[in-house]
């Protein structure tokens, strides 16, 4: 229950984000609520100290709140681990939520949107938020249970590999989407469609391995060559 309540309050966490103390004010707000749920009444001075510069991934901040409260209760190093985990969770969260989950959610929404635009919108919201909200609403209890060793949880689920898996899934579903679009918008036969799919995927691989602009240029040249040969 505490985890759900902290999760709810964390929805307001970024309300005062600014480039001087970033999410410091939000963290002070959140930690005061979290500590109170554990029967701790923090001194005003201690809460004020939490308004100092702080920046992490907002969806994972509740794990840090859990660690902080646990360390505070045990007279540990709550502010030391707060800083350490802020960077680590910034790295985890940016890679997964911003750079991998978002593109995959978009591709899934685009595929679902072909059937019905409203379904596409719903697919995006359900798929993206299912990950976002699970981490948000379970973070505090996991952070509190594991304390300063909460990194063990992320290692156990192999979280640093998730972006890689999701990128592969994005590429796969994007290929399906492009194939479907090519098939539905032209009179190409299955052989041509297969060739198209292969070189689109090749272009994406080039973009991933070399550079996105270079990948695009190469694939445009291949496209021009293909259209020239086929006389399209």
């Amino acid at each position: 229950m505490k985890s759900l309540i902290v999760g709810f309050f964390s929805l307001f966490y970024q309300a005062n984000m600014n480039h001087e103390n970033m999410q410091g004010t939000g963290f002070a707000f959140l930690i005061r609520k979290a500590a109170a749920l554990n029967g701790i009444s923090l001194e005003v001075k201690k809460v004020f100290e939490q308004t100092a510069y702080f920046h992490t991934h907002p969806y994972l901040v509740n794990f840090i709140a859990g660690v902080w409260v646990k360390e505070f209760e045990q007279n540990g190093e709550e502010d030391f681990y707060k800083k350490t985990y802020s960077s680590a969770f910034g790295a985890f969260g940016d890679s997964f939520f911003w750079h991998s989950l978002r593109p995959l959610s978009f591709v899934i929404a685009a595929i679902a949107g072909l059937y019905n635009p409203w379904l596409g919108l719903a697919a995006y919201l359900v798929f993206y938020n299912s990950f976002h909200l699970i981490f948000r609403f379970s973070g505090y209890s996991i952070g509190y249970a594991l304390g300063k060793e909460v990194i063990v949880f992320f290692n156990r689920i192999g979280f640093n590999r998730w972006p890689m898996y999701f990128d592969v899934a994005s590429a796969f579903f994007f290929g399906i989407l492009l194939s479907y679009l090519a098939k539905s918008c032209s009179d190409f036969d299955s052989v041509v469609l297969g060739i198209l799919t292969v070189y689109v995927l090749t272009g994406m691989a080039l973009a991933k391995k070399l550079d996105i602009v270079l990948g695009l240029v190469i694939i445009m040249i291949l496209t021009g060559f293909f259209l020239f040969i086929t006389g399209a």
């Binding site: 991934h57 960077s87 680590a88 910034g90 790295a91 969260g93 940016d94 890679s95 911003w98 750079h99």
Partner: peptide, 14 residues
Amino acid sequence: DRLIHGQVIEGWIK
């Protein structure tokens, strides 16, 4: 001063 974080992973390493 944040050592390894999101900008470092996405903006430099990757």
